[in-house]
Design a protein around this nucleic acid. Sequence first.
DNA 1: TTCCTTGCAAATCGTTTGCATAATG
DNA 2: CATTATGCAAACGATTTGCAAGGAA
Lengths: 130, 130
Amino acid sequence: MALKHSKQRDSIKEFLEGRKDHPTADIVYMNVRKSFPNISLGTVYRNLTLLADIGEITRIRVGDGIDHFDPVTTPHYHFICQDCGSVMDIDLEYMTFLTKLADGCFNGQINGHSTYFYGKCEKCCKALLS
Amino acid sequence: MALKHSKQRDSIKEFLEGRKDHPTADIVYMNVRKSFPNISLGTVYRNLTLLADIGEITRIRVGDGIDHFDPVTTPHYHFICQDCGSVMDIDLEYMTFLTKLADGCFNGQINGHSTYFYGKCEKCCKALLS
DNA sequence: TTCCTTGCAAATCGTTTGCATAATG
DNA sequence: CATTATGCAAACGATTTGCAAGGAA
């Protein structure tokens, strides 16, 4: 139960904190391997899961079947490009009223909501014109 | 390309239409097997994918990593119970303005959104009291 | 010295696919 | 007859896990 320090975990968290593109476990793995050539994919998964469990990072699921990870832990919305699959932040305030709205018409208790938007990202829009 | 009739596909669609609990492929398989003991999981997956592609059913992803299927094809919201994992409908009108809202603050083009609510379902709320 | 963390490999889970055969139009 | 659909089993990709060895408190 007691958490012990590990350089690998530090490195994973540090890498994530430098990115805004919500990398997958595999991307994290490929990058952290630059500093820790012997790190294993299992260790990356274990630490990402651990960090998400203790609330230091967020695991995000945007319908592509692959988990992405976000250093930002305050609730916000994401966008996923249907063309290139990239995941980005949406600069839209988190709407707690949506949760309340749903709670009002449901037998049970609603604690929150998860929303992602989809469409075509700026890059892919421009790519169409060439 | 031309679609041919198949009793298995009919059976899958018919089963789905009788359910409001958004079954997974495996649940569909186990049930359709009652009428078609030799049906294979592959056939179930193939037909669920086909039906979803031609818009006769909807594939829904509610963050548990397993695909659920819904005979209802008009956009609406779902709830997933964090205790028992059951998926149910939320009686809340689909809010197209959310898509527009996000589109207004994003460089690129947003086509839609996907939202699910989470919490504790009625059954699991009551189970706590016993 | 305790016990958490790692690397490695094998296992798991949901889903997809190749192939020969059966069914449909 | 041409072609789509099936059953079966093997393959797949993402993720998890068992285990012996290494590292932190």
